[in-house]
């Protein structure tokens, strides 16, 4: 479900709240049972302010890392049902969701006003393929708990954030299955949508996911490297997303500008990003003589973020004229 929820009225009431956008993948209009695996060569999927990359190999008919799905088969185990989520639909009763094949790590890029903003959270669940593999085992993977039921197995999703090419110091671990309890009755495999709060990661322009399992062999992880995701909620930086800090109050002028954007402040920015009004990254120019050259960009509205460290940056809305 595509949600573009405006919280502007809340913003007026409290400056601490920012506009949020949810990527629910309903914008693809998929009918029940359908999926998109990138075979159209799109290269990825945009929903809300999130861009999910896709690499499809027409020779092998293989894809990674993201697909969009509205499949509802919750009963069939195995990789031929690789697009299904265990709940049989998206989060919060929606139809559509995203499926990740994430054998060696995968990424979601935040775009538009969400690029560099705080990520509120997302919903996660198991794919039907991984779920039944962990529950019952298959020819390559063990059922969790092993032969005796007491093996301390786990299937873990680790989420990190990146900002301006730098990884964040923190990560969030979410256990898609956890059999490490002394009391085996507490062991579980996630079969419904679970909300995961990502605010502790801080501001981000991309999220990075990695799966790990206790069931590993020489060929790597035996547990099928799939998970499903929905309703990724981002915060718009343009509406005063909570910046942790003490950004040094650098100014940028003239605004509007025909090309050269001059900067002033106590220290030069360490990095600069320029996004257009659609959230696409237009470049990472270098500041020279306290100025940024935007002359190569077409006329329009741009978001120029000046970074002074991981948690210190300032966003300027800049109008470029001919």
């Amino acid at each position: 479900m595509e949600k573009a929820i405006s919280f502007s009225f809340l913003l007026m009431a409290s400056l601490s709240l920012a506009a949020q956008t949810t990527a629910g993948f309903e914008n693809f209009g998929l009918p029940a049972g359908a999926f998109l695996n990138g075979s159209d060569g799109s290269g990825g999927f945009s929903s809300g302010n999130a861009f999910l990359p896709n690499d499809y190999d027409p020779d092998f008919e293989s894809w990674e890392p993201w697909a969009i799905s509205a499949t509802t088969d919750t009963q069939t185990p195995g990789f031929l049902n690789q697009y299904s989520a265990t709940p049989g639909g998206g989060a919060a009763g929606s139809l559509t969701y995203a499926v990740a094949y994430c054998f060696s790590g995968c990424t979601i890029n935040l775009q538009g006003p969400a690029a560099g903003g705080l990520v509120e959270g997302l919903y996660l669940t198991n794919s039907t393929y991984a779920y039944f593999s962990m529950l019952n085992g298959d020819p390559f993977s063990k059922k969790f708990g092993g032969e005796t039921g007491g093996d301390p197995d786990f299937f873990r999703l680790t989420i990190k954030k990146f900002l301006n090419g730098e990884p964040g110091p923190d990560s969030v671990d979410f256990y898609l299955a956890d059999y490490r309890f002394t009391d085996n009755s507490q062991d579980y495999i996630i079969d419904g949508w679970a909300y995961v709060d990502l605010r502790t990661l801080g501001n981000a322009d991309s999220l990075w996911f990695r799966l790990s399992s206790s069931d590993i062999g020489v060929f790597g992880m035996n547990t099928p490297a799939y998970f499903c995701m929905d309703n990724l909620t981002t915060t718009d930086v343009t509406t005063a997303a909570p910046e942790p800090s003490s950004a040094p109050g650098c100014k940028a002028f003239p605004n509007p500008t025909t090309g050269l954007l001059r900067l002033s402040g106590p220290e030069p920015p360490r990095w600069i990003t320029v996004h257009n009004s659609q959230g696409q990254l237009m470049g990472r120019p270098k500041a020279a003589d306290n100025a940024v050259d935007l002359s190569g960009l077409p006329a329009g509205l741009y978001f120029v973020r000046l970074g002074y460290g991981e948690k210190r940056s300032v966003l300027h809305k800049v109008v470029k004229t001919e």
Binding site: N136, D138, P139
Partner: peptide
């Protein structure tokens, strides 16, 4: 089935 697989 394997010893860590319920059914085959």
């Amino acid at each position: 089935p394997t010893t860590v697989q319920n059914i085959s």
